[in-house]
Amino acid sequence: MGILNQLFLAFIQVGMFSVGGGYAAIPLIQSQIVDIHGLMTLAEFTDLITIAEMTPGPISINSATFVGMRLGGIPGVLLCTLGCIIPSFCICLALAHFYYKYRNFSGVQTVLSALRPAVVALIASAGLSILLLGVFQSDLGGIVLSNFRWIEAVIFVGALFILRKFHPSAIAVIFGSGVVGTAAYLLLGLA
């Protein structure tokens, strides 16, 4: 079997069985690419995860692109990403169809209303972990006070204040904090 076929089938499986978002996909990709097909070494795979986390975009698309590029060039990128997306596309399209068909029935509304507070909490927890990663460079269990980074803390408070007060677009805020923070680090000679 050609390597492109192998990659495509491997990532279809990753797309189909990774329930619960980005981090759930990592062990699946590892088992497909490193353990079953031996397409990458574990060291290469670790680098891949680092890069996937450092760059924007969903982790599984990032890893699909990285694996595809290294093993099959541009066709590899396209096939891996496609494999990753196809299961999502089919399943979510069906779910979307049913959701919009039935969402106004009051029974469905009652059930969905109980899910919404949970989603708010889940988004809050994602925000908390990214904040801790920014300010302490660790998760909740691994906080060390001496790792506190005041530049990131100031940027967080400032950005939140600006968002509440002036409602700018999200991308402007993220980009702005990147520019201001990097400038602060370079000017203060902390880099």
Partner: peptide, 30 residues
């Protein structure tokens, strides 16, 4: 890319901005 210092800093500080956006949204939703 991996060894570039400025890129590493930019990616690190952007997290603070992302966190602010998420908290803004969470406050509205909560």
């Amino acid at each position: 890319f991996r060894s570039n210092h400025v890129i590493a800093i930019a990616l690190q500080v952007m997290r603070a901005g992302v966190a602010a956006v998420i908290f803004d949204v969470v406050l509205n939703l909560a």
